[in-house]
Write a protein that binds this DNA or RNA. Structure first.
Lengths: 349, 349
DNA sequence: GTGAAAGCGCTAACAA
DNA sequence: TTGTTAGCGCTTTCAC
């Protein structure tokens, strides 16, 4: 008995406790221990309790590799952003991970990755390493990765960007409609000379939002001056630089639409430095509905996209696919809305 | 031959290719395949090439659970924040994950977790599930978790918060010194009526920064008025509310020190709403050196802590522990510095 | 209700 | 240089 105890102690230090150790102490076979641990009903309640007690005392925790091997599961969920580094704002990133983490069944691990560096390092993804994958996609380019996952039959859901070319579980928001409403909101308030700061050219959102504002302009016969269209990269600094450029423009503009809040904030900074008053001298409309947009001065009128809804719903259907083998295709579009604040002038006489 | 191919095809769909499948096709044993795949030198170059070719053709990828089981590795690195939800700013969170992801050897998975909800769901961590753990710690309360990891002999490094009570790999920044310098920076410019917005009471940073500003006050014989000390929670909104309170204070204050940039930004918003000019009416000093602090209006003077250095160094030593079994204790403190911008008045006559 | 035994896919020690 | 074999820790079928 003493000898046994000592052995166990050594084991605890040198290597982990296994079900065999527990079996030895409990005087049962390791399969019985397995049954107890898995709350099987093919086991006597008494023995189960006894075994569980011992397991607790020994601070047993299962070897997940062994369990996963026999169960053919990994309990890993990959969360893949187009890039963690470029074009993904801290607000967006945090919001996505937080929501997924909150919503995810706690038996799954959340493994965070950027497709850009992942595909550059690994030549391919290993299906056995992921029970499911969430792609938070910005770029059409991600399709290569997405298709690979699809081919490997790994449950997948693509968030944020609409995929039209092929069938896939896909949750996103109606950005086109949001931008369209936003531009009309500007036009209705008398704005005709509207500048735009666009986003990264390789991001689909840039194309979607661009065609939406162009459509709104065309419908209201607003002339489109290429000089007013600035290139940004979704980073604050690029908004700031674009703002500086806008100031140097020959023609006066009365409003600015930035493709995201961060760039709007950068532009506001540029305007303030030059003594321009917002919204008196220039109105600003952002996109995202980030937390910080509420605390700019003046607070930023912006188009909110429901990131949390998208992520939350995405997790829901991914888990449904994994656990219930549900394979009916799910495509859902959430609506965007304008948050009216104080950066747009109510009416320019 | 045709029969074989068909079998393989079915296998590819129904279950993954294994080294046995490759062995069968190559006409070698599965251990030879294993050798080829692991680039062993106990193998003929020709056979290696042939096997690798077949593996490539079949789009083989190893079953990580099986490999991990025999190697006693998981290739998982857990990144545990005190909380993902509360008190962790998007900027901080993004910066940490981004840096760790960049710096981490690509064979490791990064699993993101919040200690708060993790410990609530799982009763204990499984050593076999983590080759190493990075704790980005804010609360003393995390010690329970940290000690558990320590007991289980999982390589661990604790970032962000200094641990004095016990020996552990620990990387952090000199926040006390930063705050001390910051307050003196204010005092040197003539400020005596200084308000402070503190952070969450359960975060160690709050205590560290508090005793630092108190020390600076005491040394310069600045009287400490409890009315000037506001409670925040590191969120923007709490800074905003504190800002409102400051305005309603009986005595006029000339400067504000906020325990982080987000709260400083919130307070700036409150001040602006009330028509106060920064820094003419009130100077503001932040803490963190977040990206957004550069783009407020006016830009925020702040104490920068080197988050990237901390994370980068943390990853380095964790990998060193895991791969080189290096077990000499590593404790490192990075310096903070003041970023002088435009929210502090050069001199109040 | 329980135990014996097989096997998940892989690595590595030992033989040849 | 290669094949044979054992075994990692676990679940699960099949006997009893």
């Amino acid at each position: 008995m003493v000898l046994l105890d000592t052995n166990i102690d050594r084991k605890e230090i040198i290597m982990s406790i296994t079900i065999k150790d527990i079996a030895k102490i409990a005087g049962v076979s390791h399969s019985t221990v397995s049954r107890a641990l898995n709350d099987s009903n093919l086991i006597n309640e008494e023995t189960k309790k006894r075994i569980l007690d011992i397991a607790n005392q020994l601070n047993y925790s299962p070897n997940t590799s062994a369990r996963n091997l026999v169960l053919s599961k990994s309990y890993n969920i990959g969360v893949f952003f187009s890039s963690i580094h470029y074009g993904t704002s801290p607000y967006f990133f945090h919001n996505v991970i937080r929501t997924i983490n909150e919503k995810m069944n706690d038996k799954y691990n959340i493994i965070v990755n950027g497709i850009d560096i992942y595909t550059q390092k690994h030549q391919s993804i290993n299906p056995k390493n992921f029970d499911g994958i969430i792609v938070v996609s910005q770029r059409k380019q991600d399709d290569i990765f997405i298709k690979e996952v699809l081919e490997k039959k790994i449950p997948i859901v693509v968030l944020n960007r609409e995929i039209k070319e092929f069938q896939i579980n896909n949750i996103f928001s109606n950005e086109a409609e949001g931008v369209y409403k936003g531009i009309n909101y500007l036009i209705e308030r008398g704005h005709e000379n509207i500048a735009v700061i666009e986003g990264r050219e390789d991001f689909e959102s840039t194309k979607v939002r661009r065609s939406a504002y162009l459509k709104a302009f065309r419908e209201k016969n607003i002339k489109i001056n290429q000089e007013y269209i600035l290139k940004g990269d979704y980073g604050i600094e690029s908004g700031y630089k674009a703002g500086k450029k806008i100031i140097s423009l020959s023609k006066k503009i009365s409003a600015l639409f930035a493709f995201n809040d961060d760039m709007a904030i950068g532009a506001m900074k540029a305007f303030s430095e030059e003594g321009l008053k917002i919204p008196e001298d220039i109105s600003i409309l952002g996109f995202d509905g980030s937390i910080s947009s509420k605390y700019t001065n003046p607070s930023l009128t912006t188009i909110k996209r429901p990131i949390q809804d998208i992520c939350s719903y995405g997790v829901e259907i991914l888990i449904d696919i994994i656990e219930n083998k549900n394979n009916k295709l799910n495509k859902k579009c959430f609506e965007t809305c304008i948050i009216e604040r104080n950066s747009v002038l109510e009416s320019i006489k």
